[in-house]
Nucleic acid binder design. Structure first.
Lengths: 114, 114
DNA sequence: TGTCTTTATCGTATTTTTACGATATAGTGA
DNA sequence: TCACTATATCGTAAAAATACGATAAAGACA
């Protein structure tokens, strides 16, 4: 059984990352990395799951992603984390995942800028 | 040497595709397919190349993508085409590629809707 | 302490992606 | 007709992604 603790996601973000260029070689690579990370149905589902909440999700992600083993979901979480789209914080015995607002915002800006 | 013919991209689009849902399993798969297609620096570069123009680009794409063989670029174009993000029209002896406005718009809507 | 829960990591098999050179296809123009 | 050009496709090799079960790690709690 999974508990759900509602821990805070830090929503106060410094806007430094939002003023980087939205095109050029560097931006191309950045956008490619982020879209590649999002390029799997399970990862889209996870990102949506987290984006819909104000708070982090602790220990119920595996249950919500259908038909995938725990280790596989963990791997998908890692991909999203490495792309800077989500973050995971150890919260007692569980790990709480939430959106990395800067990363998601950056993705949206880059896609909108195409 | 590559010629560049400036052929028209049809910009008048029926908006049917813009009123589909932006979340749910179907939308997740759609978004995953599109972002996966975009998840490579060369393909981001190609999409940007085409998005910056009003017209199609005939036969100079390979030159602009550095360090990749012609056959590889052709493969990347195919991936983008299959994802509905670009289209290619045979224009005399050359093939002209341009943005598929509906597809790109759909991608933007889906990403913005996360 | 020992056991349970939760999540990450490892090892591995399978599939997919990426990239290339070679070749096919189809139009252009001498 | 015969080259020449532009693009796609084929065959193939190497790398990366995907998924799983098994196991490790670390906290919770009796």
């Amino acid at each position: 059984m999974n508990k759900q603790k509602e821990s805070e996601c830090s929503e106060a973000e410094t806007p430094e990352c939002d003023i980087r260029p939205v095109e050029g070689k560097k931006a191309d690579e950045e956008l490619a990395l982020m879209t590649k990370a999002l390029g799997h149905p399970a990862r889209v589902q996870i990102l949506r799951l987290l984006a819909r909440r104000d708070s982090c999700v602790c220990g119920e992600i595996v249950d919500q992603i259908e038909d995938l083993a725990q280790s596989t979901v963990s791997q998908h979480l890692k991909v999203l984390k490495e792309a800077g789209l989500i973050k995971g914080e150890i919260e007692g015995s569980a790990v709480c995942y939430c959106i990395e607002p800067r990363g998601l915002r950056r993705l949206k800006v880059l896609v909108a800028g195409i």
